[in-house]
Design a protein around this nucleic acid. Structure first.
Lengths: 242, 242
DNA sequence: CGGACTATTGAGACTCCTCAACTAACGTGG
DNA sequence: CCACGTTAGTTGAGGAGTCTCAATAGTCCG
């Protein structure tokens, strides 16, 4: 399963150079504009270190000194905080072309851990900043990426804000589907517990909600790490019924 | 009340030129570093239009063409979406030095409305972008501001994710307090309904929670738009008990 | 001083959470 | 290759908390 996924990701991103995707926050640029130029990819590749991580490998821990920023080339990473209560709060799942490792006051805010085997580009923060300052155009692409991140975070907030477990699950799956009419079959590389602590639900509620959707014939799970949408209209209805 | 607040805000920001505040995402810079230089303030002031808005005035509506970005000089603004169900989802309260109006695919995602009388700096998106591209240092400050926004958004997600109304309220008030040991007296320029739809609670739950905190002697409300923290230790305990 | 909006309080329904027992899948070593 | 142990996921019963609906009190503004 992981193998399959990795190969898919490899095809999607351009194999060697770092990728950055974001929709811009201004009208005149087309939706997929802020892709890096070849030159910029090369430049980033020069200052980056390629890092391979195994599933479950911790990339960095919260509270530790933050000296690197990462961009994902392949694989899936999760970011989480461990709360005093012992609970684990998953704040994000990160996919190829996502940036992570932005620190607060020089320290990482969350722990980053690989969900699947992953290939990362690692940047020294200071070197990256120099590169950004000297190439305004490149920096602008980071800016666009970050505005995109802001919106993503807000989308997640809407998701978390829903009270009904079934609605949360459908929104979550929709998020993984990426495009509005994406593939019917969707990978779920993370565990149910991960999903639960991402959605602010108990593991049991996730289980009950997924089974309910299955019973209703909205979707099915060929296996634990894959979901198939059977009845897209009903799925859409549930998702957008707030 | 509004008058009082306005004068306070006027003193806080530097009266004429746009302000931008954000903590940087790298170690070597001190926490309050990315304040604008005088030159940069001047430059921004040159390309900005000062706009005064009255309480309740709509600054822009969701779905409309997005041609401007705003920075707040004085006052409070809320951003919200109207959901199909007729519900109103308040996604953010915006304060002096906050940036808003970042669009998605050329359209505003939410409606922005003044909560109090406010003074805004309005930038034409294209002009602003030119300014950013030609001044890498200025752009970098925007970058820092946006990373800060991302973290804020994530903080809000945590807030929304809490299930207990009392915890949400305390976190919300803490957020308004800004600094960990900020003033005991805090303005609440927005209505209870606004708070409710920001926190993902019903108006009634907000009311019950605030009264409960009052009854416990944790805080009191000299009037509707002001809260005073009485028992800070207990307040902190409730806030951080997740 | 009235009218409209905002906020408080109560009663009952609903949903999710916790605890607990059970089943399924995985992978590790014999 | 199979058996076993561990982890992941499912299902049930009871309890906690918020939501809704409805009625009441308070506040602001003309």
């Amino acid at each position: 399963m992981i193998e399959k996924q990795r190969s898919r990701k490899t095809m999607a991103s351009s194999d060697v150079e770092p990728a950055l995707q974001a929709t811009p926050f201004l009208p005149p640029i087309r939706p997929d504009a802020p892709l890096l130029t070849d030159d910029q990819r090369m430049q980033l590749a020069r200052i980056a270190t390629r890092v391979r991580v195994a599933p479950r490998e911790v990339i960095y821990r919260e509270e530790t000194q933050a000296s690197s920023v990462f961009i994902i080339a392949e694989g899936v990473v999760k970011a989480f905080k461990d709360l005093p209560s012992g609970r684990r709060w998953v704040t994000a799942f990160l996919f190829p072309a996502d940036v992570f490792g932005l620190a607060e006051n020089g320290r990482y805010v969350r722990t980053a851990q690989a969900v699947t085997a992953a290939l990362l580009y690692r940047f020294d923060v200071n070197v990256l900043i120099e590169a950004l300052k000297s190439d305004g155009d490149l920096q602008f692409k980071f800016l666009c990426k970050l505005t995109h991140e802001v919106r993503e975070a807000q989308r997640q907030t809407i998701l978390i804000g829903r009270k009904d477990a079934i609605g949360k699950i459908t929104m979550f799956i929709r998020q993984l589907q990426r495009e509005p009419n994406g593939p019917r079959d969707i990978d779920l590389p993370m565990t149910r517990s991960d999903i639960a602590s991402y959605l602010g639900l108990s593991l049991e509620s996730v289980s009950r909600a997924t089974r309910a959707l299955e019973r209703r014939g909205v979707l099915c799970f060929p296996n634990r790490h894959m979901v198939r949408i059977i009845d897209q209209p009903q799925f859409d209805r549930i998702e957008s019924t707030l």
